[in-house]
Simulated scan of single mutants.
Amino acid sequence: MRGLARAAVAAALWLALAAGPALAVQPDEVLDDPALEARARALSAELRCLVCQNQSIDDSNAELARDLRVLVRERLVAGDTDAEVIDYVVARYGEFVLLKPPFSARNALLWASPALLLLAGGGYAFINMRRRARRRSPALSPEEEARLEAILNERD
Rank of each mutant, 00 (worst) to 15 (best):
E144V: 10
G94T: 00
S56N: 06
I86E: 08
D28Q: 15
G20L: 12
D59C: 05
F96K: 15
R134W: 06
S104E: 04
I127T: 04
R135P: 02
R66P: 01
R132C: 01
A115C: 06
L148A: 03
A45T: 10
A35Y: 12
A120R: 01
L98M: 14
Y93H: 11
A22L: 07
A18D: 02
N107P: 05
D58H: 11
A139I: 12
A5M: 14
A7N: 14
R69C: 07
R39D: 05
R155V: 02
A112W: 09
Y88V: 05
A108E: 09
Q26N: 02
W111S: 15
K100Q: 13
A83V: 12
D28E: 14
A139V: 14
L68Q: 15
T81C: 05
D82M: 07
E95S: 15
P34S: 02
A139N: 13
A11G: 07
L50D: 02
S113F: 08
M1N: 12
R155Y: 02
L31C: 03
A133V: 07
A115W: 12
P21G: 03
A45W: 09
D67Q: 15
S113R: 14
A24S: 03
W111R: 15
A91S: 15
E149S: 04
A83G: 03
E74T: 10
G20D: 10
